[in-house]
Design a protein around this nucleic acid. Structure first.
Lengths: 167, 167
DNA sequence: GGCAACCTGTTTACATATAAACAGTTCGGT
DNA sequence: ACCGAACTGTTTATATGTAAACAGGTTGCC
């Protein structure tokens, strides 16, 4: 690989005094959210792969079709806020495993349903996800969990603003 | 690509009745955390790439070295809970841009410091991250923000349990 | 009927994440 | 001094995420 192209006299003025930086501290909420989310996804991914040889995306799509049977791939993509390509791949995995099946839909689309085997798989996978939430929330009282839901709900309302390209 | 290998009589018993599923609803906290984290990372990544041609990992490492000048790559990796390979790549990017410099460290390691250009860059990038948090929290009162920090702190304490391989 | 715009799901190319293998150094014991 | 274990940072292989290009079918307008 390539080394630094510029001459080597820049190290002479290296900065040794710490900046006052909050970004990577426990006071910075975006970092806490990222760490928590990563830990949960990591756990779920590890367990689903180990137990059922399925990825989290496969599980998410399976789960979505449990709630909304007859959805098209595009419907699932919008419902789960998930990339179309990812849904496409997950659908193929699930079909090849005979966990979902499809009928022809309105506009060249396909209506997707769980098969009985898919329902069984769903019922086996669901406890793993729920146990993750339980473990996460185990130190909170019922009141605190309710509080947390309210607060996260308010944060969720800001997502459209975050997705805006300005500032 | 390959079609389903099994005979085609499985669609006859497809399931059409919705399951009662909480996984993808707004009541499922792991999902809220993932959506919030993704939105924040997406925003920051987009802005940093556009303004400075740097990725979020480069920014994270730069920021860590602002707080802890003289850290080794391994130190940064542990501090940020970030993969060694990612840190290694980010360090090379930052060195090639003359934003950080290094001196020889204890055990074949290198002590990393911000250069003056790195400090300038840090000071330009920091407001982008802080603005993300501000936008996220803009609908919360000061008291609610404090509540949120307490609750997230309690959730953080469960991460070691989530990382445990047993159930 | 025919052409253009649209919408389906898929493929492609590219960027990033993760984990394991790796080479080079340092340390410890003998 | 030597050999093996431990540790540095790098490289590799593999998996996954993202966005844009894409082919095919449908719709609607003329």
């Amino acid at each position: 690989m390539n080394e630094t192209p510029s001459p080597g006299d820049l190290t002479s003025a290296a900065i040794t005094k710490p900046l006052d930086d909050v970004i990577d501290s426990d006071a910075f909420i975006p970092r806490l959210l990222a760490l928590l989310s990563n830990a949960l996804v990591w756990r779920e991914s590890m367990l689903l792969r180990r137990e059922f040889s399925l990825g989290t995306n496969d599980w998410r799509v399976l789960s979505a079709l449990g709630v909304r049977p007859g959805s098209s791939a595009t419907d699932v993509s919008e419902f789960l806020v998930m990339n179309k390509a990812v849904v496409s791949k997950a659908v193929n995995v699930l079909i090849s495993r005979s966990l979902i099946a499809s009928t022809d839909g309105p506009r060249g689309s396909r209506n997707l349903f769980l098969t009985p085997a898919g329902v069984d798989m769903h019922n086996m996978m669901l406890p793993i996800s729920l146990a993750g939430e339980d473990a996460l929330l185990s130190q909170l009282s019922a009141g605190e969990v309710a509080q947390l839901r309210v607060l996260l709900g308010k944060l969720m309302s800001q997502i459209p603003r975050l997705a805006n390209k300005e500032t």
